[in-house]
Amino acid sequence: MAFQVGSALLEACVLAIVKNEDVYGYTLTQRMKEAFDVSESTFYPILRRLQKDGFLETYDVLYSGRLRRYYRITKLGLSKHEEYWHEWCSFKDNIDNIMTGGHK
């Protein structure tokens, strides 16, 4: 991909995915791969940071004889997602404006 992606955008997308449904590491990674290039990393550092900041929490589910760790969004995470969503909308509109040669 030609565009560099910063960590805020990755965080926003992780929050959006987890807001929809609780996920475990593998499914989250697969969803993120639909939009982003994962050339040399995975999403663990992002998940960890979101958890540390109180936006995500984890719980374990017994699955075929082992535990699987799920991530779910917290109240704080929901308002963070809201904030990211508004930021993204205005950013996207501004870029679209420039790209299409339009004026505000």
Binding site: Y44, R48, R66
Partner: peptide, 14 residues
């Protein structure tokens, strides 16, 4: 442990 667990679960699920 959390980090190692993430990757080992990832491989199992994959």
């Amino acid at each position: 442990e959390n980090a190692l667990r993430f990757y080992s679960e990832y491989f199992m699920d994959a």
